[in-house]
Each structure stands twice: as C-alpha cells, then as structure tokens.
C-alpha cells in the first residue's frame, strides 16, 4: 500500500487542482472554512440546538446530573446512586430487563397487530400468513413469544432478588405489593396471548385454565355453593371471561382485547406507580450497610 500512501503525502509534487493558484476562489473559501469540530461547536449555539438540549455538554458534575434530570426518559433515575448499586451481583438487572422485555413486547406486539384479525375465520390463517409470507413475520412472532416467556422468568427472578435482599422492608412495603400485582398481570398478559393463534395448543391451554373459573366458590357453577346461588354454565364467572360457555369466537375477541388493550394499560399504570415509588422510597435499597443484632433497640 506504500504507493497509494505516497500519492497523498504533502511532499507530493503534483498538487490537486486549484491549489496552484494562490489568489483563486477555492483557496479563499478554504481559508474561511471551518473544521467539522468548529462547525459542531457553532451549531451548539444555534436556537435549534439550545431549544432541544437545555444544558451544556462539557464533562462536569452539574452536566452529568442534568443529562439525567432534564431528560424525560432518564429522569426516573436519580442523578447519583449508591456506588455499589451498579454491581450485577446485587441487582441481577432483572427488574430493568423485565421492563425492557415489556418494551420489546409492545413493539413486536403492535407490529403483529397490523397482520392479525381476532376472528375464528381469520386468526389461524393470519398466523400462517405471518409465518410464511410476511417479511420477517416469523421472526416477529417468535420474538414476541420468546420475550413473553422470558419476561415471566425475569419477573420471578426479580421478585426473588427483592426478597433475598429484604428490599420489601420499610419503607418499601407498598411497592412490593404493586410488584406482586405486576407479577400477576405479567402472567395474565402471557396467558391471554396464548389463545390468539387459535391453534390446539392455545385452545386447550385456555380451556384448562378457564375451567378453573367454573369451580370458583359462589361465582362458578361447579364451585362450592355456586349452584345454590343460581350459577349455571351460562351466567357464571367463566361465562363472563369467555363470553360464552365454551372457548369460541367471543373468547378469542375477549382474549385479544384483554391482551392488547386492557391488561397492558393496567400493567402500565402499575409500572408507573412501581417506578415512581422506587424513587420516592429512596431509590434502590442497597447494597445497604449491614446492621447488627446487638445494635437493634427494641422498645
């Protein structure tokens, strides 16, 4: 490559066009021209830039804090955290990963909705269509399925981590409760999605699952004291869930609406509370300084 290199060294006698003329237009323009770095600095002074970014970018404590606090997506974080709280061994990252999976699921789920009709005639065909004809449709459906399974696992592991670090203890009792509800709604989200392909797997899984509702005490027609209260297969809680006495077209539509609208909204509201309370309860619980039995003062 030495030949190519020599061609462009300044010592090369042949000069590019225009530079041979000291008074030429190109030379004058070049003298005026700014380097990309200088242009960048200039641009940061424009109204366009300052209207978007409210703080300077040089590396100072103030700017690092403002980078987090003045950004809507980042401002749920505090500006500073416990120096050991970033250790993977402490947090396992499971809460954040769960939320990220929820984001991925929302994205892939929304894209899937463009191709899916929640009706008995079309649902299964739409899945076949996604698998075989839609560009990247199979990848999209696979991503949605596996993210859902992964989210259930990460939710469980997040709960385990919070328990093992005693992070439900005061002042975080209420947030643990929100977390338990989120655990429930994560599984319900996954469960309602199970029926949507309208295949044997989903059909029988949901049949097994909702058959439990038949046995609800008082409200199910096979539950204790249900028949005594006038429950039948056509008016009990299972009927309300399925919109019928068997898993059929109405159940498909109901599962679809629960899955795509109702539960995501409920879960989102709970997540807002969950994240807000983490901040309000003093950010992540630790790693806190260890306490000693001998130092506890009981009343």
């Amino acid at each position: 490559m030495s030949h190519g290199h020599d061609e462009h060294t300044p010592a090369e006698p042949e000069t590019p066009q225009g530079e041979g003329n000291p008074g030429g237009l190109l030379t004058k323009l070049r003298a005026k021209a700014k380097s990309p770095a200088e242009m960048g600095e200039e641009f940061k002074k424009t109204q366009v830039w300052t209207s978007i970014f409210r703080h300077k970018l040089d590396d100072s404590h103030r700017n690092r804090s403002l980078a987090v606090l003045s950004n809507v997506f980042l401002h749920l974080h505090p500006a500073r955290i416990n120096r050991d709280a970033v250790r993977y061994n402490f947090t396992w990252g499971m809460g954040g990963i769960t939320f990220y999976l929820f984001v991925l699921l929302t994205l892939t789920g929304t894209l899937l909705m463009y191709y899916f009709h929640p009706s008995k005639a079309e649902a299964y065909r739409d899945i076949m269509f996604l698998q075989h004809d839609v560009p990247f449709g199979n990848l999209l459906r696979n991503m949605h399925r596996w993210c859902a399974h992964a989210m259930v696992i990460t939710t469980w592991l997040h709960m385990m981590r919070v328990f093992m670090t005693g992070s439900y203890k005061p002042p975080r009792e209420f947030n643990w409760n929100i977390g338990v509800l989120l655990l429930l709604f994560t599984m319900l989200l996954s469960f309602t999605g199970y029926l949507l392909p309208d295949d044997q797997l989903g059909f029988w899984a949901v049949t097994v699952g909702t058959n439990m509702a038949r046995a609800t005490p008082l409200l199910g027609h096979e539950g204790p004291f249900g028949p005594e209260l006038g429950m039948s297969a056509f008016n009990d809680v299972r009927f309300a869930l399925l919109g019928g006495s068997v898993v059929d077209a109405n159940a498909l539509l109901r599962a679809y609406i629960w899955h795509c609208i109702s539960i995501p909204i409920i879960a989102s509201v709970l997540m807002i509370v969950h994240f807000w309370r983490i901040r309000k309860d003093g950010a992540i619980s630790g790693p806190a300084p260890v306490m000693l039995e001998s130092e506890i003062k009981d009343d």
Partner: peptide
C-alpha cells in the same frame, strides 16, 4: 432474543378443534 427467535420457531399446532 433475536438469536433465540432465529433459532427456534414459536409452536403452532393444528387449528383449534373442540372435538379433539
């Protein structure tokens, strides 16, 4: 997730059949 989704297809059984 992308690697998992490329390597492994989500299951799809036959169409729902209440009599089977």
């Amino acid at each position: 997730m992308i690697v998992w989704s490329i390597c492994l297809d989500a299951p799809l059984e036959e169409p729902a059949n209440p009599s089977l």
